[in-house]
Design a protein around this nucleic acid. Structure first.
Lengths: 227, 227
DNA sequence: ATAATAGTGTCTCTGAGACATTATGAC
DNA sequence: GTCATAATGTCTCAGAGACACTATTAT
């Protein structure tokens, strides 16, 4: 044991929480408390300290923090992103923030004075404390990348959705139009959606078949990598 | 400030270091010291504590640890993998280990009594301390996945290599034969290799063109994600 | 019927893999 | 010349995208 092992870095978890509002990608941010001595009352990523006495692991820390701030929901998608670290990113000292990337249906977010929505931070040129702009950047890259080969965007919906609605979310994330026919072929090949027999979305046109994710397990903590 | 913020978890870095020995994938492991009170003298991943007073960030911790144990080398590939955490994975208490995935040419490893090679741990059914078997598992999945769409396996070579040698490394990692023609087409399309004009590997057959990576930057800390 | 959107079918082009062929050195 | 391996060319097939067409409801 030497001196180095005694200066233990600060350990926090930050969550980049995405949701869709009226067809546009938004972030759920949290206003920092009045009482904190670093960046009080500034909007920032939802985050907090790891509580070694109650959390089973870092994922559990993230779940606890989300539960406290937005009200927990079973249908949240949560995935470890990357650790951000160094002596200067937090004014309190050498710190590690384990970032998580999360997706939640808007209906499951309890918006209040401390929790609010921001249309994609980069577009609004909003300047966030710590290295939160960088973290958001990486998180967005991640969901964009995964959207090219996985069903990930389905997690923006609570219970069920039509293929047209799902396609619109893919288009928003990827920033480009997708051909309807090939989109449906690809989704079908994935074999990950369940047809909700007899359930349709009704509008002023032909009713649309509703689908849901086949397995709730896919909601949880998928591997980082295309298998 | 409450009690939770005072119990700060142990913070370490572990490196899954891959190399190729006579055409087979190996891990570089390190024998734990006699003096440590957890798993003394057992083989384990190369790792150590984060030194807040000297490391600029976690990547820098990983570089320092590698430098001390295997002798640092410019040509190492190093990438953040995933954080492993919880109260039980380390007998000393609630801990976080930031795992890194690394690739090094065999010539750059200073083998000694504490540093040695193991042919793919899973194959040998070797039981490692902590959750190191799990970490190795994830690391292997990662390099396998990246090998399907990137030039990553080129980092197993020090200065230069032939396409045939490179292909053999891909085949070992992916566990399957690759067609020579399409392999070369793919590599060529990546446009990431430099032809070393006039440099050939000589054998008892037609000399083979030598190549190297175009940019040394690609050696370093690539994004997690297929861009 | 018409409007509006859901959902499917067809064609083309590209790219990966299977396989064959040619190239170049040592001997 | 032969042998061994490097390097390239050709063919086929499957999948993605462009686009056109059909289906089903409300009005």
């Amino acid at each position: 044991m030497n001196i180095n092992e005694i200066i233990t870095p600060i350990l926090t978890v930050d969550i980049v929480l995405f949701t869709i509002v009226r067809g546009e990608l938004h972030l759920v941010l949290s206003k920092r408390t009045k009482e904190t001595n670093v960046f009080p009352e500034r909007p920032a990523l939802i985050g907090g300290y790891v509580h070694a006495n109650e959390d089973r692991d870092l994922l559990d820390s993230a779940i606890r923090i989300l539960k406290n701030k937005i009200g927990f929901t079973k249908s949240i998608y949560l995935e470890q992103l990357e650790a951000f670290s160094g002596p200067y990113r937090d004014p309190r000292g050498w710190s590690v923030s384990q970032a998580y990337c999360a997706i939640v249906p808007l209906e499951d977010v309890k918006i209040n004075e401390n929790i609010f929505l921001v249309k994609e931070v980069e577009a609004t040129q909003m300047d966030l404390p710590f290295d939160h702009n960088l973290i958001i950047n990486k998180a967005f890259q991640r969901i964009k990348s995964k959207s090219t080969y996985s069903i990930l965007p389905a997690h923006f919906f609570k219970d069920n959705f039509t293929l047209t609605d799902l396609q619109k979310v893919y288009e928003v994330i990827l920033g480009q139009k997708i051909d309807k026919s090939s989109f449906r072929k690809r989704i079908n090949d994935m074999d990950i959606l369940k047809v909700l027999e007899g359930k349709f979305k009704i509008g002023v046109q032909r009713p649309a078949q509703l689908y849901s994710l086949k397995s709730d397990k896919s909601v949880w903590f998928k591997s980082n990598i295309k298998s």
